[in-house]
Lab assay of single mutants.
Amino acid sequence: MAEQVALSRTQVCGILREELFQGDAFHQSDTHIFIIMGASGDLAKKKIYPTIWWLFRDGLLPENTFIVGYARSRLTVADIRKQSEPFFKATPEEKLKLEDFFARNSYVAGQYDDAASYQRLNSHMNALHLGSQANRLFYLALPPTVYEAVTKNIHESCMSQIGWNRIIVEKPFGRDLQSSDRLSNHISSLFREDQIYRIDHYLGKEMVQNLMVLRFANRIFGPIWNRDNIACVILTFKEPFGTEGRGGYFDEFGIIRDVMQNHLLQMLCLVAMEKPASTNSDDVRDEKVKVLKCISEVQANNVVLGQYVGNPDGEGEATKGYLDDPTVPRGSTTATFAAVVLYVENERWDGVPFILRCGKALNERKAEVRLQFHDVAGDIFHQQCKRNELVIRVQPNEAVYTKMMTKKPGMFFNPEESELDLTYGNRYKNVKLPDAYERLILDVFCGSQMHFVRSDELREAWRIFTPLLHQIELEKPKPIPYIYGSRGPTEADELMKRVGFQYEGTYKWVNP
């Protein structure tokens, strides 16, 4: 592979701008107003304001973009700056750019259920340069409990009458099928589907988006991507930290609602779906819905739930269990780990287990898709061969690698495990991989909904998990304890083995 010439960040961002501006969906010269509902909250200060700053800094926003914060707290732009700027990672050389960014910011205080507050917000936006005809993007960085009041008031008082209007809704989209349907029906009564952007930030990850290209742009994968060759698929999300004093919020939802029903299920769809007619948003989402419709409700015998306990040999936070978090209700049975087996009941995947695993306070930070292939028929190497695996590593250190057998150097035919490896950090030294939120917010500006969740996708996802969630809430089974920093409950490994996964433990990928 030829040595790549190092590029400056300015040059890299210039390439990104060229890609972005050559499309006809990006209205570079139009006025846009980006409204952050819930501007005083954690999500706004840690993710949304920093993301908008990065896009502005790199010249990736339309030229005439204004940012308006809205929340109940009586704040000023200076207050917003004070709480969000520490997350910007701005350099001293960017000081003038930073001043320009905050000059485009404003803030309006108001209630979430008060019509007069929204009329005041609308008047404020109209007073901005060309504000009355601007395109408006409303980001709901809010708890779902206020979605209905907020969307109703936005629709009645704050819509642009000339430009387009788009609304970005953060997960969780309800707690179960019934609450999700209620919320979807409410929002759909106010906005068209092409105006609604239900954001799952995992769909903005580079390697998640790469799944489609790997599958449908490489001839070698087509013939082997089926039940005849693939023994099982494992989708993993692991965090090495616990709730760390923020367990009160987590306890309301648990690990299945927080990660599995959305992030992991979306990745499953991209692995299992048929080739779409095109890369058009609805063509892709149509195929994802077909996959979900082929999955039956989760069966309790295919589920393992766990909850982390303190590690007596650990240090600091590792010595504390979930129930030691003062914000967690006493005696909570909320799971911090889950392993679930699903089956896609169609011709391509009949009988292939899709194993979804996620948890907190585990032994490493990792998100990946792992396809394990069947054993080689007619073994001539005296059971020395391990199964081939194709691994798409989402985070950290984005990579695609194939675990395969090669001859060990020497005189004899002794096979050993090795890999074919594409590590993004080595291959793409001159490429700026956008943060997931950067990519998705740019998608909203461009009107691309491919990486957002459609209402029928959402409904099918909740259909699969709601009976299990209701059973857990009714019966309150005690989750299996696992030690902070471990791989999780051993019962999860036993479940995976029972459905056909072979864990060798003899080879570990190392970032080159």
Results as ranks from 00 to 15, higher is better:
2 A>P: 12
2 A>L: 08
3 E>D: 10
3 E>C: 10
5 V>D: 13
5 V>E: 12
5 V>P: 09
6 A>V: 11
7 L>Y: 08
7 L>G: 08
7 L>D: 08
8 S>C: 05
8 S>R: 05
11 Q>C: 06
11 Q>N: 10
12 V>Y: 07
12 V>D: 06
15 I>V: 09
16 L>F: 08
17 R>S: 08
20 L>K: 08
21 F>I: 12
21 F>H: 14
23 G>T: 15
24 D>G: 15
24 D>L: 10
25 A>N: 11
25 A>Q: 05
27 H>K: 09
28 Q>Y: 10
29 S>A: 12
31 T>N: 09
32 H>R: 06
32 H>G: 03
32 H>C: 11
33 I>G: 02
33 I>C: 07
34 F>T: 06
34 F>Q: 02
35 I>P: 01
35 I>W: 01
37 M>E: 00
37 M>I: 12
38 G>H: 03
38 G>N: 11
40 S>G: 06
43 L>I: 09
45 K>P: 02
45 K>Y: 08
47 K>W: 13
49 Y>Q: 00
50 P>E: 00
51 T>A: 07
53 W>H: 00
54 W>P: 03
54 W>H: 08
54 W>F: 06
57 R>Q: 02
59 G>A: 03
59 G>S: 02
61 L>V: 06
61 L>H: 00
63 E>G: 14
63 E>R: 13
63 E>A: 10
64 N>G: 07
65 T>F: 10
67 I>V: 08
68 V>S: 01
68 V>W: 00
69 G>M: 02
69 G>D: 02
70 Y>W: 03
71 A>V: 01
75 L>D: 05
75 L>F: 07
76 T>M: 07
76 T>L: 04
76 T>S: 07
79 D>V: 03
79 D>P: 00
79 D>R: 04
80 I>A: 03
80 I>D: 00
81 R>S: 04
81 R>P: 00
81 R>W: 09
81 R>G: 02
82 K>S: 14
83 Q>N: 02
84 S>N: 10
84 S>T: 09
84 S>R: 02
84 S>Y: 10
84 S>F: 09
85 E>G: 06
88 F>C: 05
88 F>S: 02
88 F>W: 04
90 A>P: 04
90 A>K: 03
92 P>Q: 06
92 P>S: 12
96 L>Y: 14
98 L>K: 03
98 L>A: 02
101 F>L: 00
103 A>H: 11
104 R>Y: 03
104 R>T: 03
105 N>I: 11
106 S>V: 09
106 S>I: 09
106 S>T: 10
109 A>K: 10
115 A>H: 14
115 A>E: 08
116 A>G: 08
118 Y>G: 01
118 Y>R: 00
119 Q>E: 09
120 R>F: 05
121 L>K: 01
122 N>H: 10
122 N>W: 04
124 H>F: 07
124 H>K: 08
125 M>S: 03
125 M>D: 00
126 N>Q: 07
126 N>P: 01
127 A>G: 11
127 A>C: 12
128 L>Q: 10
129 H>L: 09
131 G>F: 03
133 Q>N: 04
134 A>M: 05
134 A>N: 11
134 A>R: 10
134 A>W: 01
135 N>D: 03
136 R>V: 04
136 R>D: 00
136 R>Y: 10
136 R>G: 00
138 F>R: 00
138 F>H: 00
139 Y>Q: 03
140 L>Y: 04
141 A>R: 02
141 A>M: 02
144 P>F: 13
145 T>Q: 12
146 V>F: 11
147 Y>M: 14
147 Y>P: 06
148 E>M: 12
150 V>N: 02
151 T>G: 08
152 K>E: 08
153 N>S: 08
154 I>Y: 00
154 I>G: 00
156 E>A: 11
157 S>E: 09
157 S>I: 08
159 M>G: 13
160 S>V: 08
162 I>V: 11
162 I>H: 10
162 I>T: 13
166 R>V: 01
167 I>D: 00
168 I>Y: 00
168 I>V: 06
169 V>C: 14
169 V>S: 06
170 E>Q: 13
171 K>W: 06
172 P>E: 03
174 G>H: 09
175 R>V: 12
175 R>G: 10
176 D>T: 06
176 D>W: 04
176 D>C: 09
177 L>Y: 07
177 L>H: 07
177 L>R: 13
179 S>W: 03
179 S>M: 06
180 S>T: 09
185 N>Q: 07
186 H>A: 08
187 I>M: 08
187 I>C: 10
189 S>K: 06
190 L>V: 14
192 R>H: 10
192 R>S: 07
193 E>G: 03
194 D>I: 05
195 Q>P: 00
197 Y>A: 00
197 Y>D: 00
197 Y>T: 00
197 Y>N: 01
198 R>V: 06
198 R>G: 00
199 I>V: 09
200 D>Y: 07
201 H>L: 06
201 H>G: 12
202 Y>T: 13
204 G>R: 15
206 E>W: 05
208 V>R: 00
208 V>H: 13
209 Q>D: 15
209 Q>M: 12
210 N>F: 01
211 L>Q: 02
212 M>C: 11
212 M>D: 05
214 L>N: 08
215 R>T: 01
219 R>I: 10
219 R>C: 12
220 I>S: 03
220 I>R: 03
223 P>E: 15
224 I>L: 11
225 W>F: 14
225 W>S: 01
227 R>N: 05
231 A>G: 12
232 C>D: 02
233 V>P: 01
233 V>D: 04
234 I>T: 15
235 L>M: 07
236 T>H: 04
236 T>L: 02
238 K>G: 12
239 E>P: 00
239 E>H: 06
240 P>A: 12
241 F>P: 07
246 R>L: 13
246 R>Y: 12
248 G>D: 14
248 G>R: 15
253 F>W: 13
254 G>P: 02
